[in-house]
Amino acid sequence: MKITVDEEKCCGAGQCVLIAPEVFDQRDEDGIVVLLDAEPAAEHHGLVRESASVCPAAAIHLDEA
């Protein structure tokens, strides 16, 4: 799994950080998503998929090929 995030779409809600804090964080100044691990281990995949799905800005893209 490879994760990309669209910083321009990100609305800083922090939903992804609440769900998968080992993969996502937020910048202090504006709350925009910070990707901690673009190719997380398999054990995180479920929560990463959930983060992508609930992201209120559809700003998280997953390449599962």
């Binding site: 800083g12 809600a13 922090g14 950080v17 609440l18 937020q26 504006d30 709350g31």
Partner: peptide, 11 residues
């Protein structure tokens, strides 16, 4: 208000 990360922490 213009403090997204801190707001989430207070949640």
């Amino acid at each position: 208000w213009r403090m997204p990360k801190q707001t989430r922490l207070h949640r």
